[in-house]
């Protein structure tokens, strides 16, 4: 089983990184957004109650999430292509186990997520972000970022298995983007003025993923934020895996 996961993951990573046109824009776009937003929204740090005087430090965690979302798109579109070309059927004819196939397929998204997390963190550090929780916190940031990428990546696989087409996967992405936008990505929840927006951001798990990462950067060790961040990320993985596993059985109805 481990060997099978490794083989499928290896192929997934190789395929992802052999398509620079696929992974370079998702890697650089969050950096561009980070560059413009961290400066364009710097004035927000003057608001009473804003938790830090560096908007870059505040905004950095959102880049991990955005990168993960892009990685999820790649994972989904790649799997949809495998379904479309019959490559999934080819794999189904080998002794590979469905669970190994699923976990291995996430490999590309996790690999890209890890690369993105390292790049974003490095860029943040280079431009003066101070990680309040030190080296241990930085490692935890990377871990949480990879978990988030895994969760979103698995969701992308589920969409691919459900729709069976790259266009089908992409057409669902505005919804996922919407989920990230209606969150505490740009302002802390207590500073969001519009009531409905604040309420949606409060029930949106994305807010807690961002806040978990953000706590490690700007507010030191915050057990509650970490618990919620890791908890929602793991829950996303569990739910997405469950959905994708069920859908895989339908898609790969081998006897």
């Amino acid at each position: 089983m481990t060997q099978q996961v490794w083989l499928i993951a290896q192929r997934s990573v190789v395929r992802t990184f052999r398509q620079p046109g696929t992974w370079i824009p998702p890697l650089t776009f969050p950096l561009m957004l980070m560059a413009v937003n961290s400066n364009g929204l710097r004035a927000a740090t003057h608001l009473p109650g804003f938790p830090t005087d560096s908007f870059l430090a505040f905004f950095l965690p959102f880049s991990f999430l955005q990168g993960a979302l892009f990685a999820s798109g790649i994972a989904g579109v790649d799997l949809a292509r495998d379904i479309d070309t019959g490559f999934l059927n080819r794999l189904a004819l080998t002794p590979v186990r469905g669970s190994a196939l699923l976990i291995g397929q996430i490999g590309g998204a996790v690999g890209l997520g890890a690369l993105q997390a390292c790049v974003y963190l490095s860029v943040g550090l280079i431009f003066g972000v101070h990680i309040d929780t030190g080296v241990a916190g930085a490692f935890l940031i990377l871990l949480l970022a990879v978990l988030i990428a895994t969760g979103w990546g698995t969701l992308g696989l589920w969409l691919a298995l459900r729709t069976g087409s790259g266009e089908g996967v992409q057409s669902q992405f505005p919804l996922l983007f919407f989920a990230t936008f209606i969150s505490s990505m740009n302002l802390p929840r207590n500073l969001i003025e519009v009531t409905w927006f604040r309420d949606v951001a409060t029930i949106n798990p994305v807010s807690y993923m961002i806040e978990g990462l953000r706590s490690l950067v700007i507010s030191g060790w915050d057990a509650q934020a970490l618990l919620l961040g890791f908890g929602f990320s793991l829950a996303l993985i569990a739910v997405s895996l469950g959905l994708a596993g069920r859908q895989l059985k339908v898609r790969m109805a081998r006897t």
Binding site: L41, A43, A44, H46, L47, P174, F177, F178, F181, I182, M185, N186, L187, L191, I192, E193, V194, W196, F197, A201
Partner: peptide
């Protein structure tokens, strides 16, 4: 989506001095 996220999520910015 942009409109909702920006107009809804960032309206507090109008209180920034200046």
């Amino acid at each position: 989506m942009n409109f909702m996220a920006f107009a809804g999520g960032l309206s507090r910015l109008r209180h920034v001095p200046g």
